[in-house]
Amino acid sequence: MTGITASSGSTHAGVLGIGSYRPRRVVPNSEIIEQIDSSDEWIQTRSGIKERRWASDDETVLMMSVEAAKDALKESGIDPAQIGCVVVSTVTHLYQTPAIATQIAVAVGAPTAAAFDVSAACAGFCYGIALASDMVRGGSAKYVLAIGVERLSDLTDRNDRGTAFIFADGAGAAVVGPADEPGIGPVVWGSDGTQHAVISQKESWQEAAGSQNWPNLTMEGNPVFRWASYEMAKTAQQALDVAGVPAEELDLFVPHQANMRITDAMRRALKLPEHVKVARDIERQGNTSAASIPLAITAMREAGEAKSGDLALIIGFGAGLVYAAQVIRLP
């Protein structure tokens, strides 16, 4: 009997480059408050958000992804033609098919790479890193480009007091490839479909087709806050434990930038030491779902808070509900 040759990959995988793209247009709270009968102070108290970025017409999901990917590829030093797979996490590429990943692959110079989209909402970047790491270690791709990108402003109800001030746009990318030492810890991930309705598109595309309105996003704030602040702190702790990284050795805590109050509650629940720097990009960027973690990391690097070799605990959580967390070493 003829046997089948098994694939073989690298013993270890790591993040080799990270990039991001912030839309040009800054939208301060003052632009939001009129339509939701709110105030700058109310928004800041509830979310920590001072301003966010909303994409202009030319800043498409494709364009933002490609810009973020170029930066990540440049830092990695990898020839784009060596990318074996492009994984794109997004909920705002408005085609059911084809995936945006194939066009991104062409645009970045990896025209024949395997390419697909992932629907894992705000956990998307961490899902992408987990898939990429396993592909590199399993041998199905030597290098993987993992992207998180959103134009949530397209799906935001500007009149909804609960969400109009939260959601924003942007892109982030990471190149994952072989490494001499483990650069990506084991993923702790899962889902809770019993809570599928607490963050959701209000109606299907079919239901929206006959109306003038887009199917906006809706969220039940309190249950989401409770789940994210407390259950996700446990998941984050598990990611540290399985990676064998005690909190004392951690440099950065980069949770999905959902709400500053969630970040603060998680930080308290995790009892992180004072020296651990905490991502607070939401203040300037809003909640960009799958893009928020790489955007926050690049912001921390630009601010001098993060440097090459730092150990970062990343955790994404959101609609589904879905979640994923891992420890990564910054390139």
Partner: peptide
């Protein structure tokens, strides 16, 4: 006590 703080109080 706002709604988010109320969640924290409850937990």
């Amino acid at each position: 006590v706002d709604s988010l703080s109320m969640v924290e109080v409850v937990v």
